[in-house]
Design a binder for these strands. Structure first.
Ligand SMILES: [Mn+2]
Ligand SMILES: [Mn+2]
Ligand SMILES: [Zn+2]
Ligand SMILES: [Zn+2]
Lengths: 139, 139
DNA sequence: TAGTATATGCAATTAAATTGCATATACTAT
DNA sequence: ATAGTATATGCAATTTAATTGCATATACTA
C-alpha cells in the first residue's frame, strides 16, 4: 500500500509523533490486515503497549484504519482505502479470513445490499467470508 | 424459542447435567442472542465461570449454539435453528446488531452469495448488519 | 449397585485491556 | 527562536478476561 503517514496525520489534525508514523507504516506494509497481537510482536518494545492501544483507537475513530474482528474476537487492522470519515467508515467491501493462515484480506468486492425486515434500519453491513485464500490454495 | 435441552443433550451424546440444561434454557429464553457477559450476570453464581466457558465451547463445537462476534469482539450465543453438525454450522443467515441496545438478532434473511476472486474459496460467509432494531426504532 | 469416565468447582496462572499520573514532545503564539 | 500550552507517551497499578491443573462430584454403563 502506498500511503504517506505524515500527510495522513496532517489531514486528520493529529500530532506528528514517531510512534504514530511507525504504526501506520507497519500496517500499510502489507495489503492484508494485521492482527493486534502480530502488530505488538512486530513493534516489540519500540512502542508501549498502552500507546499502541491508544493509537489504534484514534486511527479507527478518525477513519484512518478500519478494524475487522475475526472469528476469535481478535482485532485486525487495515488501512482504509476509500475516504473514511470520523462519522462513517466506507469499508463496505467484503473481507476474507483464511482459516488456514488466518490472514484477513480486504477484497475488491462490494458488500452486498441486504433487505432488512420491517422495523430494522441498517446503517452498515459487514461481510466476512471464511475459507482458503489464494496463497494457501496454491500450496 | 421452543427447544428441549434434555433431548438436545441426548442427540449429541452429551451428559445430562443441571448446568448444561440451565445454560441452554437461559439462552433459548430469548430469540435474540445473548452475550457472554450478560449470560454470566444472569447465571450469577449458579454456575462457575470456567464451567460456563466449557459448556459454551462444547455447545458451539457440537453445533448446538452458534457464536456471533460483535463489533467489540464479545461473543454472543444463540440456539442453532437449523440442523447444525459438528463439522458444519448452517448459520447462513444475516445477523443484525443494534447499535443502540446492542442486541443481536438472527434474521430470517439468507446470507447473500458472494462471488470470490480467483484463487479464493469461501466455505461460509458471515454477514452482520449494524443499525437500529425494531424495538429501538419504535421508541 | 459398583465401577468408570467425564463434568464441575476452586485456586492459581496467564493474558488482555483500562486507568491515573508524571514526564516528554509537538505545535502555537509571541 | 523561545516560551507556553496542549496533548501524547511510558510506566505502574488495576481491572477484567481466559486458561490450566487438579481434587471431587456426578452421570452413565455394565
Ligand atoms: Mn477492509
Ligand atoms: Mn444466528
Ligand atoms: Zn491463507
Ligand atoms: Zn435495539
Amino acid at each position: 500500500m502506498n500511503i504517506n503517514p505524515v500527510s495522513i496525520l496532517k489531514e486528520h489534525d493529529l500530532k506528528h509523533t514517531k510512534q504514530r508514523v511507525r504504526v501506520l507504516e507497519e500496517i500499510a506494509l502489507d495489503s492484508v490486515a494485521i492482527s493486534q497481537p502480530d502488530l505488538e510482536k512486530k513493534l516489540g518494545k519500540e512502542i508501549d503497549r498502552v500507546t499502541l492501544y491508544r493509537i489504534l483507537n484514534t486511527y479507527q475513530e478518525k477513519g484512518i484504519l478500519h478494524r475487522i474482528m475475526d472469528m476469535n474476537g481478535t482485532a485486525n487492522y487495515a488501512v482504509c482505502t476509500s475516504s473514511c470519515s470520523e462519522d462513517h467508515h466506507h469499508d463496505e467491501h467484503v473481507h476474507f479470513n483464511c482459516t488456514n493462515c488466518n490472514k484477513i484480506y480486504c477484497l475488491e468486492v462490494e458488500a452486498p445490499r441486504i433487505k432488512m425486515p420491517k422495523g430494522f434500519t441498517a446503517k452498515t453491513v459487514s461481510s466476512i467470508a471464511y475459507g482458503i485464500c489464494e496463497k494457501c490454495n496454491a500450496i
